[in-house]
Amino acid sequence: MVLNNHIMAIGLSQRTSAAAIEDISKSLFAAGQYDTVIAVKIPHNHAMMHLDTVFTMINYDQFTIHPGILDSNGKIDTWTLTPGKSDDQIQIRHEDDLQKVLKLELELSELDLIPTGNGDPIVAGREQWNDGSNTLAIAPGIVVTYDRNYVSNELLREHGLKVLEIKSGELSRGRGGPRCMSCPIVREDIC
């Protein structure tokens, strides 16, 4: 997930290993494309294989997050990778406070993590199954979501976002939310 023009986030999951993230980071650093990669450990289960199914950037300082990826204290393991002294080395810093890491790396004083299903364990689980966290930001603060995630969609509106709902009766059966249905690979600098 491209967070800005020099920071990328990658999910550490059953599909992406720590070694793969290190290799990707070395390649990105050597190419001069990025200077920071944030690896976020997500649970190893079929419903949460990709980072954007449980965590998505939707504005400069706002993210959707499925509360099921956090432990009982609201923590999650992250590793911040930066270039080392030579091209084949990287520095790795471990943290367990995602909000702290994002604020530091994105140079933000405030950060809004918006929980799927308003954090209710039953609603969050149901709406995450229907890709409630998998929102597609088409501009800062403007997102495309599935209409069936009514609790999450209302919460997004309460947080000041413009929500464009699409009918999801058939799309959601294919497993994948609006962001999964697209392929965002570049985040244009709009500052």
Rank of each mutant, 00 (worst) to 15 (best):
D97E: 07
D97F: 04
L98Y: 09
Q99R: 12
K100S: 09
V101Q: 04
K103M: 10
K103A: 02
K103Q: 10
K103Y: 03
K103D: 04
L104M: 05
L104Q: 09
L106Y: 06
L106W: 05
L108Y: 07
L108W: 06
L108V: 07
S109G: 05
S109R: 10
E110S: 08
I114V: 07
I114R: 07
T116Q: 02
N118Y: 01
N118E: 07
N118G: 04
N118T: 02
G119R: 13
G119M: 14
D120H: 14
D120L: 11
D120K: 12
P121L: 11
I122H: 15
I122W: 15
I122R: 15
V123W: 06
V123L: 13
V123I: 15
A124L: 11
R126W: 14
E127D: 03
E127G: 01
E127M: 01
Q128G: 13
Q128M: 12
Q128L: 09
W129P: 00
W129C: 01
D131Y: 13
D131E: 13
G132N: 11
G132I: 04
S133G: 11
S133T: 12
N134K: 15
N134P: 15
N134H: 14
N134I: 14
A139N: 11
A139D: 13
I142S: 12
I142K: 13
I142V: 15
V143K: 00
V144C: 01
V144P: 01
Y146F: 01
Y146W: 00
D147G: 06
D147Q: 04
